[in-house]
């Protein structure tokens, strides 16, 4: 028969059960405050996602939906942006995020071997997090703009350049819990 009419514009703001919120009142207030900051409210989505990730450590689907409701924009559009930008994580990540560049310069200087060595030393594959939740290994972000120091990698905001297999093993030791 005739399909159920979907709700075209979900409006959650001002209603709903506060216990279901994944963001704190402070973050929620900060996100609402972003609304007037730009000519178009869509421009506030990235700022809002950053606030959400700062609080939770990543952007779960619930947080995306909450950002959408607070800003009054499409939840699908917010999810689209959260998945587009590589600095937003839609899955839980470790406290240390290891991102290895495998663009052209780094690849020519052996980033594939670096990645293989990292996987071996950490005991996880690219895209995974160590069982203790401390380290996440990500391939393969786009160019780190450190071609002069290829092969390069980044741990959170710190760059490590001209990496060798030995240096990588030492770095992993450093990154283990208790060492940092």
């Amino acid at each position: 028969m005739i399909p159920n009419p979907p709700t075209p514009f979900p409006t959650r703001e001002g209603g709903g059960n506060t216990e279901a919120y994944v963001l704190s009142d402070t973050t929620r207030a900060a996100i609402v405050a972003l609304k007037g900051k730009y000519p178009k409210v869509q421009s506030a989505i990235l700022d809002a996602l950053r606030l959400a990730q700062d609080e939770i450590g990543y952007v779960p689907a619930e947080a995306s939906a909450e950002v959408a409701a607070l800003l009054g924009v499409s939840p699908h559009h917010v999810h689209s942006l959260a998945t587009f930008y590589t600095m937003f994580f839609t899955q839980p990540v470790g406290t240390a995020i290891v991102e290895v560049c495998d663009n052209l310069s780094c690849a020519l200087w052996g980033s594939r071997r670096i990645i293989a060595r990292l996987e071996e030393a950490l005991g996880i594959a690219v895209g995974e997090t160590t069982p203790d939740g401390s380290i996440t290994l990500l391939r393969t972000i786009e160019c780190l703009a450190a071609c002069g120091g290829a092969p390069a990698l980044r741990v959170n905001t710190t760059y490590y350049e001209k990496m060798t297999e030995e240096k990588v093993v030492a770095l992993v030791k450093e990154l283990r819990p208790g060492k940092r």
């Binding site: 924009v73 939840p75 559009h77 689209s80 587009f84």
Partner: peptide, 18 residues
């Protein structure tokens, strides 16, 4: 905006919020 592009570049795909 109820149907969107997820991910980027060669990983792009059509989809909706989780």
């Amino acid at each position: 905006s109820s149907l969107v592009v997820l991910e980027r570049a060669d990983h792009s795909e059509i989809g909706v919020a989780e």
